[in-house]
Structure formats: structure tokens, C-alpha cells
Design a protein around this nucleic acid. Structure first.
Lengths: 138, 138
DNA sequence: TTAATCGTTATAGTTAACTCTAGGTCAAGT
DNA sequence: ACTTGACCTAGAGTTAACTATAACGATTAA
């Protein structure tokens, strides 16, 4: 089975070796094997697990909570409900984030067109006189 | 013209007075007026400006960069291009975030169904034997 | 008049997530 | 043999964005 060094994994996942060792220290990588001298040996499933860690992180989940999930995984079928509930909660959380981000996008797009108009006019004042301007072009 | 105290603004925007004073200290609220004794007086347009600050913050923009934008606003029409460019860049940034979040959502939803199946079966092993199971039901 | 409440500043403390340094081991190449 | 480079740990340092405290002033209700 193919194995990977810590720097290979770091490169693959766009992380640093510092970060990976930090994750390990925080208990996020209890499954990673070691050589006799202590060197970490990662395999493909370790990398897949790290991708889930990164996925949870990208939902805004703090590392301490991700550790709970990792712990549950090690406890077997008795924690299936907890893990299911966790992912359902993450789903709701991401849905809310998507909604928020869409609202943010609307504001940003409004600002883009605001500044486009101002830029074309050479002055922001164009927006102050918007009613007058509208009446003039009618 | 209606004015607002710092705690009223905090309540309205779901922030704390600490945060608002912190923003002020960081140069995000140079437009806020003061009473003779130093008390801040916010008006409606200050609140609107703060909503833009919050919008920029929700795109992941750091406070120091938001300050640049605030400074540009105070410098008038000579900075219109910079401000337009900034919002266009923010737009691209939010688009990228939306893409990322959609990918995250796919992974999370996959995990939800993974754990739903495991929960129904009472064991996670169901996924290890997925090929055998598939052949049995055929 | 005095106690509470709200405001102020300056400054210190907190938290999360890294990020780095020092000092060490070990295997490979010259 | 010795240098180079990748690995290790423990622990210190950094950064952003708050969050809290202390000490003070002004306003208001009892």
C-alpha cells in the first residue's frame, strides 16, 4: 500500500507540515501510523480523513468540535447517531451560510453598479442628484 | 434628524459596544460625530455605513483593508476607481466562496446519506460490504 | 444628595489557529 | 567521516478580532 510523508501530504492538501503536526497535537489524526523512530506514515485513507477535516473546517467548525467527531469515529457504531446529527447540523449551517453569502453578494453587486455609474460620471455626486437627473431625462 | 447612542446602534446591528469602539479605534468610524463631552452620536447614514462594513467583513475582508476603503471614501472622487476595483474584487472573492461552499455542501450531503444508511443498518459496516450487498439484492 | 446608569479612555486579557525556533535523531549521498 | 535534508518534540511567538477591566465624567430617578 502506498504511503506518504508529512511533507507530501502537506503539499497534496495545500497545508504546511506545521499545520499537520498541530492537527495531530490537537487529536485530529489519531489514526496516523508511525515508524519505529516516530516518523509519521500517512496512507490514502488518512488523506481522505484529512479532506473531511478540511471540509468541516470550511463550514466554520472549530478544531475542538472536529476532534469530537474524530473521537466518535474511533468509538464505533454506538456513535452513529451523534455523527449523523452532526452532519445534519453542519448541513443546516452551510445552508444558512449560503443564504448569507447570497445577500452579501447582492449588496456587493449593488455597490459595483453604484461605483460604475459614479466612475462614468466622474463624480459620486451623480447619486446625490439621482432624482433631478431622472426628471431631466424624462 | 434622529440620532442613536452607541448601545442603540450595537443592538440594531447585533454587535457589542466594545466592538463598535474597537472599530472606531481602528479607524472604521471617522464620520461619527461627538457631543461636547465626547459621547458618540450616530445618525442613520452612520448605521448604513456600518452595514457596509459588516458586509465587507462577511466577505472575509480584514479590518485593516476595510479601513483603506473608509479612507478612500473620505478622499472623494479621486479614489472612485480604487473603490470600484475593490468591490469588483470582492465580488470575485464572494463568487469563489460560493463555489467552495457548494462543494462543501456536496460532501456534507454525501456524509448525511452515508450516516443515514449506516444508522438504518445499525452499523457502519454496511458501507464496507456495499458490493456484496448490491449483488445480493439483484 | 446619592446611587444607578450610561457614556468615555487606556490598557490588559482572551481565543483560535496557526507559525516558528531550538535542539535533537536518522538515513542517504560524497 | 561528514554534511545535507527530512523528520521529530516542546514550547514560544504571532495575528486578528474581539472582550473585559479600571477609573473616570455626566445624567437622571428616588
Amino acid at each position: 500500500m502506498k504511503t506518504y510523508s508529512i511533507s507530501e501530504v502537506a503539499k497534496e492538501l495545500n497545508l504546511t507540515t506545521y499545520t499537520l503536526r498541530y492537527y495531530d497535537k490537537e487529536g485530529l489524526l489519531p489514526f496516523v501510523e508511525r515508524k519505529a523512530n516516530g516518523t509519521r506514515i500517512f496512507n490514502q485513507s488518512d488523506i481522505e480523513a484529512l479532506k473531511i477535516v478540511e471540509c468541516l473546517k470550511s463550514t466554520g467548525m472549530p478544531i475542538k468540535e472536529i476532534k469530537h467527531f474524530i473521537d466518535w469515529c474511533g468509538e464505533g457504531d454506538s456513535t452513529l447517531q451523534k455523527r449523523y446529527d452532526m452532519f445534519m447540523e453542519r448541513k443546516a449551517c452551510v445552508e444558512a451560510q449560503l443564504e448569507e453569502l447570497k445577500k452579501t453578494m447582492e449588496v456587493i453587486e449593488h455597490k459595483c453598479s453604484y461605483y460604475k455609474t459614479a466612475l462614468d460620471a466622474g463624480t459620486e455626486d451623480i447619486h446625490k442628484n439621482v432624482h433631478i437627473a431622472a426628471s431631466l431625462t424624462k
